[in-house]
Amino acid sequence: MRNKFLTFLALFILGLGLVACAALDSGKDLPVRHLSSEDAGGSTSKCTDCHEARGDKLAFGTFVHTSTWGSNHRQTAYQNEAVCSMCHQTSFCTDCHAAQTELKPSLKNQSDTYRQTPHRGDYLSRHRIDGRVDPSSCFRCHGNPKATKTCVACHG
């Protein structure tokens, strides 16, 4: 199995190398930066206000920031990092997904109640239950030795 992966990686490096000497453009021609909300004349969080839900370049309908987007964006982001970065700098992501931080996102941005940041209110009490019910959701952000620094004070 591992030999297959090494083969895959070698081919992959070769493929990337080819980019340097050949025109391997996808033809999507997506912009690196999206218009700001000021330049776009309104909020850019509902893509389908301006784009087709199933467009030629992207399925824009899948990027609409609904009221559940804060808890459901994982798979979209893991497939489309370049699309996220059109509007968001990495610092926006690291408010929640940081290797190590002391201020939880709802505290760092306490006044921004319109952002559906996780762990709002007295989450210290609630995390005992949420962690028991679904520890997989905790693991995504706290699942390595550095990010778990806030956990070890009590959990050892």
Binding site: H142, G143, T148, V152, H155, G156
Partner: peptide, 8 residues
């Protein structure tokens, strides 16, 4: 493995 940590 080593990349995991308590409480997980």
């Amino acid at each position: 493995s080593a990349n995991s940590a308590n409480p997980f």
